[in-house]
Write a protein that binds this DNA or RNA. Structure first.
Lengths: 206, 206
DNA sequence: TCATTTACATACGCGAATGCACGCATGTTA
DNA sequence: TAACATGCGTGCATTCGCGTATGTAAATGA
């Protein structure tokens, strides 16, 4: 049976992703400071030995989780920024897609870490800040463009608006924690409000 | 000089509020797990001895901070719910007042603690949850009333809307961290959006 | 088949931070 | 002013979780 006899690379990869997933859930629930590596390893079906064999320590593990989330998020949500032509449509599409993305249990990880490391000087905090700043830098010109085109009314500076937009979409989705139709619906509403748009015409946005 | 010769009760009260204020700032910046009592006491001008004389421990201190914030918040923001007659006006007034309230440095404490203890079973977490649930229970009927009067359009269930409203106002204000006119302006926009209202007529809401 | 490497478990040392014991000095009451 | 209470500082014990060193079984490669 090849089922029992696995290659080393395969074992390594399986262990790594199992630990990564457990760590992501743990970070989302408990945050960084309260994350106990023993629990993470146990929940993944291993001991701390396996964890330390794959990651150099707690910090490295958290950074790997952040990178992993960023990757999947970009593939699932972030790409919309480039694929949707109209800036306003793109912003609203991201809000709804983010709600869908966050229906899994990893949802809160980024927000938890961001609030935990806000105003600190920690590598993990810097990694999160960097992602967030990149998104702000990506959405700020979209808002500016929408206002120039006249599809968005004037309002507070685009950067401030972008920051509020991101924080809001994140918070709404977490507050509703996957209550299926309403998370996307309310994320959409909040985004429209922040951008100064009137309510959506009618019927819940699919 | 009576300045040097203070009564015991006075000393106690001064120490207590100094420690409480330091703890509030510390919780807002570092959260509960990363809060070091030695630093709190030092920042207040004391040592841990004084702290343990006034509070039974870290948990008790955090609970006292939560109670203190709830008190000041209710006196400054929460009262609007009862003082403003129209439900929709009340909701928007609270959003703006919350932004103003959060311009002080204690702002993030409640949100930090709430995210830190979300999904845990910790006394501090329960205290925060209780406050939050009380607010949800207070705002849910306001939304329902607005919809019945026709001053609010229909939308997701009132409770979900109330939760999203609270989380949003909180998040927007923290994301903008006291950037003076825009925090209130964007909190107002987000609240309007969530409630399904059209944008405010014109001119930044004072 | 045997040497070497790899995946993982187990055991230990260590620092950090909490909580509590005790001690001193300043108020309070008689 | 003497006896006591209170605010507060200091030192100690304990806990907890991280990081590392060491051991073992399985896989690779000759």
């Amino acid at each position: 049976m090849d089922g029992a006899r696995r290659s080393q690379a395969d074992r390594r990869a399986r262990s790594r992703s199992a630990i990564l997933a457990a760590a992501a859930r743990g970070l989302s629930r408990y945050g960084y400071a309260n994350l106990v590596l023993d629990r993470v390893a146990a929940e993944a079906g291993y001991t701390r030995g396996a964890l330390y064999h794959q990651f150099s320590g707690k910090e490295d593990l958290a950074l790997a989780v952040v990178a992993w989330i960023e990757e999947t998020w970009t593939a699932e949500v972030g790409r919309l920024t480039r694929e949707v032509a109209d800036p306003v449509e793109a912003l609203l599409a991201v809000a709804r897609a983010h709600a869908v993305y966050c229906r899994r249990d990893v949802a809160g990880a980024l927000m938890t870490l961001r609030t935990e490391f806000a105003g600190q000087d920690h590598p993990v905090g810097r990694a999160i800040m960097k992602i967030f700043d990149r998104l702000v830098a990506e959405y700020t010109p979209l808002i500016a463009a929408g206002r120039e085109r006249g599809t968005l009314p004037p309002g507070p500076p685009p950067e401030e608006t972008a920051r509020a937009y991101l924080a809001t979409v994140e918070a709404v989705v977490i507050a509703l924690a996957g209550r299926e139709p309403y998370d996307a619906e309310l994320a959409d509403r909040a985004a429209r409000g922040l951008l100064g748009l009137p309510p959506a015409p009618a019927g819940p946005a699919g």
